[in-house]
Design a protein around this nucleic acid. Sequence first.
RNA 1: GGGCUCGUAGUCCAGCGGUGAAGACGUCGCUCUCACACAGCGAAGACCGCCGGUUCGAAUCCGGCCGAGCCCA
Length: 955
Amino acid sequence: MGDHRGAPGPRHRRSADHALRNPPVRGGLPDPIVRRDGRARPRGTRHLLDLRTRTPREGTRLTSGSLPPRFDPGAFERRWQEAWDRANLGRAPDRPKGTTFTVVLPPPNVTGDLHLGHILGYTITDLLIRRARMAGLATLWLPGIDHAGLATQVAVRSYLAKQGIRLEEMSRGQVIARVEDWKRDHERRILAALRAGGFSLDWSRYRYTMDPAYERATRRAFVALHQAGLVYRGERFVNWDPVLQTAVSDLEVEHAEEPSTLLYLRYRWADGSPGGLVVATVRPETIFGDVAVAVHPDDGRHATAVGRKVRVPLVDREVPVIADAGVDPTFGNGALKITPRHDLLDHEIFQRHPDLPMPPDVIDATGRLDSDWVPHRFRGQDREDARKSVTEALRSGGFVDHEAPYVHAVGRSERSDAVIEPRLSTQWFVRMVPMVPPVVEAVRSGDIRLYPGRWELTFYRWMEKVQDWCISRQVAWGHPIPVYYCSACLHETAAEEPPTECPECGHTPLKPDPDVLDTWFSSWLWPFATLGWPDDTPDLAHYFPTTVLVTGRDIMFFWVARMMMSSYFFQGRPPFRSVLFHGILRDEQGRKLSKHLGNAPDPMDLLRQRGADALRFAVLFPNPVDQDGCFSPASMDNARNFLTKVWNLVRFAQAHLPDGTDPPDRAPALTADSPLENRWILARWRRTVDDFEQAIAGFEVTRAAGLLHSFLWYDFADRYVEVSKEALSGRRGEPLRHETRAVLLFTLERALRLLHSIVPHVTEELWHAIPHRGELLAHAPWPRADEAPDDPEAVVAMEVVYDAIRTLRSLRAENRLAPTSLPPAWVRPSGEETAEVLRAQKSLVLEQARVGALNFLAGDAPPPAGSAPSVTPHGEFFLALPSERSRAERQALERERDKLTGLLARAEQRLADPGFRHRAPPEVLKASEEKARDLAERIRRIQEHLAADAPAGTG
RNA sequence: GGGCUCGUAGUCCAGCGGUGAAGACGUCGCUCUCACACAGCGAAGACCGCCGGUUCGAAUCCGGCCGAGCCCA
């Protein structure tokens, strides 16, 4: 690989060879919009899924090193991905020296394709990873995929169902073969998307939750927990999915309010006396499994009923009325039918009354009524149908006292949407409670930090009431539970490798457990199993604990919390130092992006049409990633516009940097003669780096992106580039031209380095178009703030200058002066400092405000005749007008006066308050007084100007 | 039932005790000025959800209400 290290330089890039290897994007059509004709272009017609991909104009890309005016991601993204691959960019060192920076990729499920939420998480991570790598840390970003047991089997199941194939009718082996086909297909697509996104992962360490080594880690974990008594098998109530016919964990059940009917059923007295006990239920179909009716012991209404017997409707079976404190006397009539096999609470009550008989299941694993206790006519009916027919039978039998609409929480299976059936069954569980304390302590003490911090509260709450975790699943796709049963002595053996004989009695062969493990039972080992655990590998020693986990907060409990538990149990250490939770992306109407709603753009389409960089920038900015942000066509346009801006900045620089310009190894040394703009842009750059680093330290990635956006666009492009054109032209002398070129190049090159962490391809392409040192931007050193000097004076002075420029430009526009005219202007500065700055930077104001002269008025000089005034905090400005004052100008003055009057009123009110004068800090008081004086003075001057030509008035 | 988050211009969103409430999209003028019309310059547009409280001072802190969403049972 060594001989291919060199990245393609500009020469390589321009070769026709490359143009051929990167043909125009598929489906590209010529752009029908006339580009240079602003008038013909329809306004506001932009679409996210704009399929009119631009065909690169022949010739533009291949001509003499100059970049076309717009960038075409299709022309270079692939090429740089390949260059990074050749340079082994993502490859982490085997023997790292110094600080390491490790992230494990939350492994995408092979269930389906990547969605925008993945792209968001990966973009954030790649930002952190590229930055760490450029900063010289030993950086590992470990990729992988998750077999996603149940979820994938369900996906395959519905895929097959569309072809009329029923998964239930296939053998276990056939199911696995089908799912493996599916997995291969989706793995390929996921990996293609990860590459297309430009994510700098270490592919040499790629892992899959079902590769043999990972399976071994999963078995080791199970056996170790089994030995520790933290994994056990038992008959307990579980959430049963009757469609998929498997148990699922509490987390896989989604609760929602659903309308139903509450039936008040009359259970007649067994002794034949009139009346009976009225029992309320929403599940009449379970009455066949009743073994008692319970009332609260303190419920006076039913005191005499306790101890008597009632008959279960429709079957006439006699059951006792019992008293139990578990009954909620406020529900229905306060009488509860006890169906111990189909309701958790009923089961608890049942257990406190040992004399009650244990009934059979009256609902089977498929959700149908079945058992000797069920009358023949109802057997085989599905729960929903049975509810209707049983209700009907109860009504016609006169058992329904009354009925009422009722809304109650119904649990549905996350995967099949089937209503969960509480079912007593024998399953494997993990005891969670003993695993909680070190995790809670880690978060409390800050050993693991959650970002944003507000999630801590939610995290603790869940931890406090965590329940045992049901980990066995009755499906084919997953890690087999490594337990083997002896048919002779009934001993169960948990072992990493199948034992040949029963360790208790020597019996052979042993029967393996038929179930598989919950997919999260392998995922919760991800941060260390991927690094080689259970072996004592160098990677584990070097790269664990990992640095940060970046993930959606929807899997906080499924995954993040459980990883912490497993890590403290198996490693005695946290799995990561920080967790960054990002939000869920929504569309413009605030809906979750989902395939089902059809509002989820496929990231691959966006990647192909708009490029990885635009997509990456769009998910980070402008909507904050830590909230449930909105992803809209506008964000994509915004990103594209910004990248075009950066692209053109480089084109500008290219045009002004002569061949042979030195690479910007350090910030240019400024002299006492250096112009304000050069001092200012370097100071602004320094502050931008500082702010960027501060934002990243708190994982505020949207703010970080925004800082670069506003620096490059508003400071660098709108101000610095405009201001420096004069110097770059050479009209202000060669020494200044030389210095300005150096400042321009330094600032732009450094900004590309920071920006590279977010939009790697376009920055890499641009970096190679300007003087630089090194083979790849991806390997360039991370900029440091202290490379450039701070210069607070320059920052303040530039603000004063630009206030003046804005004021004069505004006067021009309001008075509709011709763009070419160069009217003279006057200023009466409000203070000596302002006066000094404006005097020193006069030429800058003349140029940027397009005025012919800037004259300074003494404090008492009258306003120049025939001029438009504007009164600002920095002074009074006047612009010469060709004729009398315009109506627009008068209105602007009046508006300004009214606004200032309002402000003054507020300021005076504050100053009139004795409390304020006594309690406010002196500097605040002083500032307020100055402000009020300043406002009053400016209002006075505006009034003068208005009065000066009031009679004319007509403009 | 318990908990969390969010209500700021037409839209998105920043600010989180003293600001003339920042920015973007959109809107309206002017400009195809030799990096960029996917642009530049200028303009209009917000009593910061409502009601109380704390404070000399509240968009910002506290309480209540109303509205939107999410999580857990």
